[in-house]
């Protein structure tokens, strides 16, 4: 399995990367850690003619506690998240979820910005950022814009990012309020069959692999906000979702898992 041929350029800065994107258009792809893109290229499911390597933009590798939130450079690797003292204090959920992605070798290379931009509904970190109510900072030719995580994902492997934009920073609110993450899979290294993120005592509840995008479990959130018990709220976990059917689980079983795991997550998060 070998990628089709392409041209390659190292981006010297975010501005440079964006200029290159503008120059090469739809046929170009940003390469960060490469752990989503390269496998797709090996199967020739992705055949960009220009690969722009942003993996060397070390100025986008940082985790900083700022005013009420943690700012994370888009090129920050999962391994850095899972070992971050800043996150341990300010956002332990993100630190924990990072430690569940793929396997250690994957976490050494994969980046937070890359996984968010990839917009895989089965990925852990997008769901975590979603539950946390994070904000994504995108830079384009005309400057930067902030995108709320729950407005970012638009479809299967699709986001609101324009072809000439790149993520530069991810912000998650500081807070250690009741949180939990449930990842249900058959092998440790695999994507979640269903995953559930609970943040801030149940104010944010997200679902992994329950549709074509990472989802907020809005029915659960609203029920909790309206005073429902965790058990009653969890029963609504699959409301409004269209979960996929694959070799591991059909839609119906995914619905059951979502309800079961939401209850577990809420309970573990101290929501009763």
């Amino acid at each position: 399995m070998i990628p089709a041929a392409f041209d390659y350029q190292v981006a010297e800065s975010a501005d440079h990367a964006i200029a290159l994107l503008g120059e090469h258009g739809d046929e170009s792809k940003l390469l960060a850690g490469g752990h989503s893109l390269v496998p797709m290229m090996k199967f020739r499911l992705a055949t960009p003619t220009m690969v722009i390597d942003v993996g060397r933009l070390d100025d986008l590798r940082y985790i900083r506690a700022e005013n009420g939130h943690v700012a994370i450079g888009a090129l920050t690797r999962h391994h850095e998240l899972e070992n971050s003292d800043v996150l341990a204090d300010a956002c332990p959920m993100l630190k924990h979820v990072a430690s569940l992605v793929g396997d250690p070798s994957v976490r050494h290379r994969g980046t937070l910005g890359g996984t968010l931009a990839h917009s895989d509904p089965a990925s852990d970190l997008p769901a975590a950022v979603l539950a946390l109510g994070g904000t994504l900072v995108a830079q384009g030719p005309s400057g930067t814009r902030e995108i709320a995580a729950n407005e970012f994902f638009t479809g299967y492997f699709e986001s609101v990012l324009a072809p000439d934009e790149m993520l530069t920073e991810i912000r998650v609110p500081s807070g250690t309020g009741g949180w939990n993450y449930q990842k249900f899979n058959r092998r440790a290294q695999d994507w979640a069959i269903v995953g559930v993120g609970v943040a801030d005592g149940g104010k944010g509840v997200s679902l992994v692999n329950m549709g074509s995008v990472p989802l907020r479990a809005t029915a659960v959130e609203e029920a909790l906000a309206g005073g429902a018990s965790a058990a009653d709220a969890a029963a609504l976990a699959a409301e409004g979702t269209e979960p996929p059917t694959d070799l591991n689980a059909d839609a119906d079983y995914r619905g059951h898992l979502a309800r079961t795991l939401v209850l577990r997550a809420l309970t573990e998060a101290g929501v009763s």
């Binding site: 490469g34 090996k42 993996g55 070798s105």
Partner: peptide, 22 residues
């Protein structure tokens, strides 16, 4: 499978999922 695991700057990485240019 990890059969291709090497160390890059001291950390394990799967060399089948990286380009040489990286």
């Amino acid at each position: 499978c990890g059969a291709c695991t090497i160390h890059i700057d001291g950390q394990s990485a799967k060399s089948c999922t990286l380009l040489a240019v990286q």
